[in-house]
Design a protein around this nucleic acid. Structure first.
Length: 605
RNA sequence: GGCCUGGUAGCUCAGUUGGUUAGAGCGCAGCCCUGUCACGGCUGAGGUCGUGGGUUCAAGUCCCAUCCAGGUCGCCA
């Protein structure tokens, strides 16, 4: 060992001991005679003092040459700092008076400073990720991630789960995310797909009788990146047999309760449960942010006679095909937001709504008027009759200072516009979401199918192996849009952090669902034959879920992006800035893989 | 693929209506300084204004194209 202690260990209890530390030069303060070095390792920072009277001229001369990020080994005695204690350091009560100094390695001047204060752009951080990861904030995030994974493994082990690895090289499955493909050398013209999730394997493991499976599983999806999406990401993936929805939810809930208790020092109440229908109606979203109220209220019946033709015509239209959704008028009340929402801001919000597919955004600013009456302001306000205003006042709990927003369109559009507006207002404009407020809930029983305008047919909301409610099975033939699925998503502060379903375990139901999705028996055999085959050999009732580990850690760490909780993430165009990857393959590699590329080879700059 | 924001010194940024030699803070280098802790003082070096084209007497600034980073919509069963 090159050290006796870490840079975070030493306290007053170690006074007068001779110790050896190793680490990086965080900072150097040279007073001409006495020199201070802050020595850093991942455990913390310790002040090293080079006093020429104690360390001697040779060591002092060397200390004079030290620079940021050099790697040192120092030995010396632990001394009290007396009244010079630094309250900002865990080791602030002591310092080490060096008597020996070894430079283990020199360092180039880093492109950015390795400390908490330095603001650095992501492009540079990613290029020098190995330096970025030296920063305490990143080290905290990765250590938190380690602790969470460790707790998860312990939790599932204690609950009888078995961790089983499944293939990453597997078969392309139609539908769902675009797969990364890997060409086969030994099978010319054929490709593996990188697993987008272990979904089918874990169902097969249930057929095999493993009963309770868990895996910290790497998944791959070739889709465009986001703040919370990387091309490779990690799921805490689980599956159970002989259970129903409630059992999975109990297990999933236990995991986050344990994580929050042990790592966030926060006791979670039992998770609230809400049906998908309720979430969409009241919050316009399948992942409502419950850190603030601002519910969406349906005013479709009110709109018929309100006097405002835009609203009246929105609910009057009856000639639409049923799957397009009915016309509705809904509203939300930004209580007391009048002062904060200027005319300019309202214009921005209107643009925001249009960007989400709204034709416009009707709003009403409510101010205190004469004689204790309310003064209704805004383009929509003047057309609304007095009686309708009074009804609005009651139904939206309107008081002076409120701002009302209306959506009038087909239900789907109104939900997505008002749902997004609600979050924009609550989180970004009005600051109603407080830090360290953890609003978990389950959103369950989503529809099994939804109409796809693009495909002009019903498609699976979740995936085609999701089980319908038994009492809804007949509707697969008669009322496809209203078949409820045994599905559940765990939502935290408006972010979907996990989800799953009970699976279909009998071939007959599976056949009905495939048929409803327009998948013929032959297609089903070709694409999922292995699964159907397995289901015919005594598949137990089963179901499961998966947590998005990266998102979970991002929220726990208070990070802005999952890139801050992934050691080596990719950029928005799925590049690795540090490796300069991907790169063109060589002719020899391509030949071995029986490939020719159609893309022009980019000349490297 | 669409829309939005950004790209100026190693880093973070400013740069007016297009006008003389493009600035600041931090970092870096040298010198000074024996109790600092994001030490302090003095001096100094450091620029293909992302790239290519255009307009103009004159472009960091205006126009077009393009690349990169980020956000967002589509997409992510």
């Amino acid at each position: 060992m090159l050290r006796t202690h870490t840079c975070g260990d030493l306290r007053a209890a170690h006074l007068d001991q001779t110790v050896t530390l190793a680490g990086w030069v965080q900072n150097r303060r040279d007073h001409g005679g006495i020199i201070f070095i802050d020595l850093r390792d991942r455990a913390g920072i310790t002040q090293i003092t080079f006093d020429p009277d104690i360390c001697g001229p040779a060591v002092h001369d060397l200390a004079n040459k030290l620079r940021s990020e050099w790697v040192l080994q120092i030995s010396g005695a632990v001394r009290s700092r007396g009244d010079k204690t630094n309250p900002n350091l865990a080791t602030g009560a002591i310092e080490v008076f060096a008597t020996a100094l070894t430079v283990l390695n020199k360092a180039e001047t880093p492109p950015f400073e390795i400390d908490e204060h330095a603001k650095v752009g992501e492009e540079v951080r990613l290029k020098y990720r190995f330096l970025d990861l030296r920063r305490p904030a990143m080290q905290r995030n990765l250590i938190l991630r380690h602790q969470a994974v460790k707790l998860a493994r312990d939790y599932f082990d204690a609950n009888g789960f078995i961790e089983i690895e499944t293939p990453i090289l597997c078969k392309h499955t139609p539908g769902g995310a675009r797969n990364y493909l890997v060409p086969s050398r030994v099978h010319p013209g054929s490709f593996y797909a990188l697993a987008e999730s272990p979904q089918l394997f874990k169902q097969l493991l249930m057929v095999s009788g493993y009963d309770r499976y868990v895996q910290i599983a790497r998944c791959f999806r070739d889709e465009d990146l986001r703040q919370d999406r990387q091309p490779e990401f990690t799921q805490i993936d689980l599956e159970m047999s002989f259970i129903d929805m409630d059992d999975i939810m109990t297990i999933g809930e236990g995991l986050v309760r344990g994580l929050w208790k042990k790592l966030m020092n926060h006791e979670l109440p039992p998770l609230r449960r809400m049906t998908y229908a309720e979430a969409m109606a009241s919050y316009g979203s399948d992942k409502p942010d419950l850190r603030f109220a601002m519910p969406i209220v349906d005013l479709s019946d009110w709109a018929k006679d309100c006097g405002f033709s835009v609203f009246q015509s929105a609910v009057a239209a009856t000639d639409r095909p049923s799957h397009a959704g009915r016309g509705v008028v809904r509203a939300l009340n930004a209580k007391g937001a009048n002062e904060q929402l200027s005319r300019r801001t309202l214009d921005q919000l209107t643009e925001f709504a249009k960007g989400l597919g709204a034709k416009g955004l009707a709003w009403i600013k409510v101010a205190a008027g004469a004689e204790g009456k309310l003064d209704w302001q805004g383009p929509a306000a003047k057309n609304i009759s007095d009686a309708a205003r009074e009804a609005l006042r009651v139904r939206l709990d309107v008081a002076a200072g409120d701002v009302l927003f209306f959506g009038a369109d087909v239900e789907k559009t109104v939900c997505s516009v008002l749902g997004a507006l609600r979050v924009e207002l609550g989180v970004n404009r009005l600051g109603l979401a407080k830090p360290n407020d953890w609003q978990f809930l389950w959103v369950h029983s989503a529809p099994l199918f939804e109409w796809s305008e693009e495909a002009q047919q019903f498609v699976a909301v979740h995936h085609p192996f999701t089980a319908p409610y038994a009492e809804d099975i007949d509707r697969i033939q008669t009322d496809r849009g209203h078949v409820r699925s045994k599905s559940y998503d765990m939502v935290l502060n408006g972010c979907e952090i996990g989800g799953g379903s009970i699976r279909i375990h009998d071939a007959e139901t599976q056949g009905k669902v495939f048929a409803a999705l327009g998948i013929s028996a032959e297609d089903a055999q070709r694409k999922f034959g292995f699964l159907l085959h397995a289901l015919s050999f005594g598949a137990p009732p089963h179901g499961g879920m998966a947590f998005g580990l990266d998102r979970l850690i991002m929220l726990m760490a208070g990070a802005e992006s999952i890139r801050d909780v992934v050691a080596f993430p990719k950029t928005q165009r799925a590049r690795d800035e540090m490796l300069d990857c991907p790169t063109p393959a060589g002719d020899r590699q391509l030949k071995e893989l029986h490939l020719v590329t159609a893309a022009p080879i980019q000349a490297k700059a």
